[in-house]
Amino acid sequence: MSAAAPGAAPVRDAVEWRLAAPLGLTYVVFFAAPFLILLGISFYADAEQTRLGFDSWVKFYTDAFYLKVIFDTLKLGVFAVVATTILAYPLALVFRASSPRMQRVLIFIILMPLLTSVVIRTFAWIVILAREGVINQTLMGLGLTATPLNLLQTELGLVLALTQIEMPLMLLPLLAIMNQLDQNLIDASRALGASKWRTFFRVILPLTLPGWIAGATLVFASATTAFISQSVIGGARLVYLPALIWQQSMVVYNWPFAAVASLTLLFTVLSGIMALSWLGRFARTT
């Protein structure tokens, strides 16, 4: 652009720069300002918002119950990342080896659940995990268990459901980077006598790490905030930050406390994202 008319470049920049203003302004008013209000409200000491103070923060961070909720939320995010990674990498390898036609079919299969409402996917897992659900019927049919297993309202059931719900988020960046991977590097590794296992762990895995980090970030952020899946499949016994935020703000009407929980969720997700990007930088330098 600027090469065509070097003299005019700054003026053009200024004109084009201004095109970002409408979206920028929308973000300032409807995105940044609400977060500032949220932060402000968290410094009210009481539910009626009459007194300022750090009481809500102190109450949240000194109570073992709430600390456990933070830990459980982080743990759920990590489990979802691990489970989607284990399933997504082999599928991405198969995708890479497939014909273009087959690749389109696979993309379709991956996009389909992504575009199906999260509520519907959660609903599907109720049908699957329920006492008379698909898994219990299969297990009892095979004689593996005499009584139906309790899968709903367990962490295992929730992780299983989240794995399906979040897997497309892991797959899409992974498939993109897998397709760009230079076949010569794999061939070289094989020609030098490395087994497929060794080639995968020493060549493919390090080179596709940026795609994995992009996917893991999305899965972590999504799994930790999946309110509907967490509350419907996890039930009342498993409490995560989103349910706590909802309950405090819409049931108990303690907005300062809900604001603290909400900012804690924000920090939790941000720390997860930062840990992942740090991992990415660390992996590049070693």
Binding site: P34, I37, L38, A221, T225, F227, S249, L266, V269
Partner: peptide
Amino acid sequence: FLSPLVLPTLSYGLAALMF
């Protein structure tokens, strides 16, 4: 501009309600 894709939108939902 891309940040709402990774930031927890649930936190944003409550923030918007309060705002």
